[in-house]
Design a protein around this nucleic acid. Structure first.
Lengths: 205, 205
DNA sequence: TAGATTGTTAATCGATTAACAATC
DNA sequence: TAGATTGTTAATCGATTAACAATC
């Protein structure tokens, strides 16, 4: 069942989930594919088609009960639990990620931080000790961590990724501005703000 | 010519540009669609097809001269110039963005910062003064700024976006975890790390 | 020349949309 | 009941890939 669902559909589910949570916060209890589509700039047909891969979550004539759909999407995406995440890199970006409040209620918790600057190792960041990268693999193996965020300079990113994967990490959010080379069973997502900016300048006058 | 190029093609060009720059740093002078494709996990046919929208940049038998292709892609994407960018929000994330060194050699410079916390206004961040959001529109109009990064809480993001657009901004990089409602002539790109993480957990065991 | 690689065309593949019966 | 909206099928649309002549 899981096997033949297009990546592009999975990619939209977090957007639906985010919009639905927002609707709930705004006090709505029920919504429709049309309302959701209008908010997101997506056709209602696409939303219904996407959701139908996982079951019938709505009711003809009335639409979707938001709390129920949120619960179902959380289950589908496996964020009805809290994932422990390893953060590699305790620079400006790593620090901002540590302080970010938005992870916990959406399924994630930064559980350990690594850096290799001697002056940082042993210091605290938030309420976590910064560990040496030399200890990274043992900590990740011991705690069974499956997800990591890479926030180190581009030159170090591939090396860090290789070690993470060797230690059992299967999902990497890479903030370093480069494409990683990983085996087929490892998922990578990229965040590079400059890429996002360069996708817009083309359209400017 | 510009009009009928698919967005999805434009979206890949910054990735090509990034990889080509990296190849150049590594000392390569020439590459091929096969080599680039191998590095990026993209088919060589797709790379050739994408590039062919903008002209013939390669040579049969030998491939692409990297410096020339980089130059051409920079022109296509309009990042052969430095764009002034407005940053709204001087919290942890805004501060990390201010300190980020990676903008300038890829076409962007943060030219002004805004926040509405009284204790921040007037303080320096990097070598820029933090201005009040009340001054945002006049500064943006005066300097003719076309690009902004939103790094404020979700509740404020739409309001900030509306003001930016009214002041003439045409491209927004939105770090707030919500979809913005904007007119058709305004481009928006989104960065929400939780969305990226939730796109991977589905595939974890 | 022989080998390699481009740019492009046609074929294939996959995603989106339109439409509507079912039904709340 | 009448109106609204789902879930799904078929049609359309668009993107990717395969293949190859051109040519460096």
């Amino acid at each position: 069942m899981t096997a033949n669902i297009p990546d592009i559909v999975i990619g939209r589910l977090p957007i639906y989930l985010r919009a639905l949570s927002r609707l709930a916060v705004e006090g709505h209890e029920v919504t429709s594919s049309h309302e959701l589509g209008r908010r997101l700039g997506i056709s209602s047909a696409q939303i219904r088609k996407d959701l139908s891969h996982f079951g019938g979550f709505g009711k003809q004539g009335t639409g979707y009960q938001i709390s129920y759909l949120v619960e179902q999407l959380r289950q589908v995406l496996k964020v009805d639990q809290e994932w422990e995440v390893a953060l590699i890199g305790a620079g400006d970006l790593g620090t901002a990620l540590m302080h970010y409040k938005g992870f916990s209620d959406r399924g994630f918790r930064i559980a350990c931080v690594f850096d290799n600057a001697p002056q940082k190792i042993g210091k605290k960041i938030g309420d976590l000790d910064i560990h040496a990268i030399a200890d990274m693999q043992s900590v990740i193996k011991e705690r069974g961590i499956k997800i990591a965020m890479i926030a180190v300079p581009a030159e170090k990113a591939q090396e860090v990724a290789d070690k993470l994967i060797e230690a059992g990490v299967q999902a990497i959010l890479n903030y370093a501005p480069m494409t990683l080379n990983v085996p087929g069973n490892v998922k990578v997502q990229y965040i590079d703000p400059v890429v996002n900016m360069q996708r817009m300048t083309f359209y400017l006058v």
